[in-house]
Write a protein that binds this DNA or RNA. Structure first.
Length: 175
DNA sequence: TACTCGATCGGA
DNA sequence: CCGATCGAGTAA
């Protein structure tokens, strides 16, 4: 069983649920040389709306955050610390800025390593999650027991304040 | 235009 | 623990 997940699927209104759902799904990358690399997603984090002070959209619509206000199913890729490219999947309906950060895949733990491993950079920002863009999500039928998914506070967002730091919106596949 | 600081990582 | 490295956001 192998099915590309349509962009429209990610327009549902539950970023936190989608972050959990993505655990065990495959992130698939077609490289410039035509080779395809598919890896299970092991760690994610949800960012949900302007009210979420950890979310980049806390500053409202800007050139950078505009993509998050669009329909779910697009990639949001940005540079962090001047060094690391961060890969996010925009989720939710148009008008509500939200995204899921892909923090870990098989063989690559940490958001900066995910993008380095799969040769992902800002050229993919705003691109759609589909086979045409070269980066997409597949449901290959792997089922992860809910009890195997650990929910924890998000990493590296102390600036957001205690209320938002406390949200357990990071999901880790505890194998 | 100046300044600050980061959704991180690797090395000391 | 610290430095790398640069662009977005903010203040001026």
């Amino acid at each position: 069983m192998k099915a590309t997940v349509a962009s429209e699927f990610f327009q549902q209104k539950k970023p936190v649920a989608l972050a959990r759902w993505l655990i065990g799904k495959h992130l698939v990358r077609r490289r410039a040389d035509g080779s395809v690399d598919a890896r299970m997603i092991c760690e994610t984090e949800a960012y949900d709306g302007e009210r979420d002070l950890a979310c980049h959209a806390r500053a409202g619509r800007t050139a950078r955050t505009e993509v998050m206000y669009g329909a779910g199913g697009a990639w949001y890729v940005y540079l962090c610390y001047g060094i690391h490219e961060m890969l996010n999947l925009v989720v939710g309906p148009p008008g509500w800025p939200a995204a899921v950060l892909i923090r870990g895949i098989e063989g690559a733990s940490g958001p900066g390593r995910v993008t380095k491993t799969l040769a992902i950079d800002r050229a993919l920002n705003r691109a759609a999650s589909d086979e045409a863009s070269g980066l997409w999500i597949e449901d290959r039928g792997v089922r992860v027991p809910r009890g195997k998914i650990l929910a924890t506070p998000r990493i590296g967002i102390d600036y957001a304040g205690p209320v938002w730091v406390a949200k357990k919106w990071r999901f880790v596949w505890a194998r």
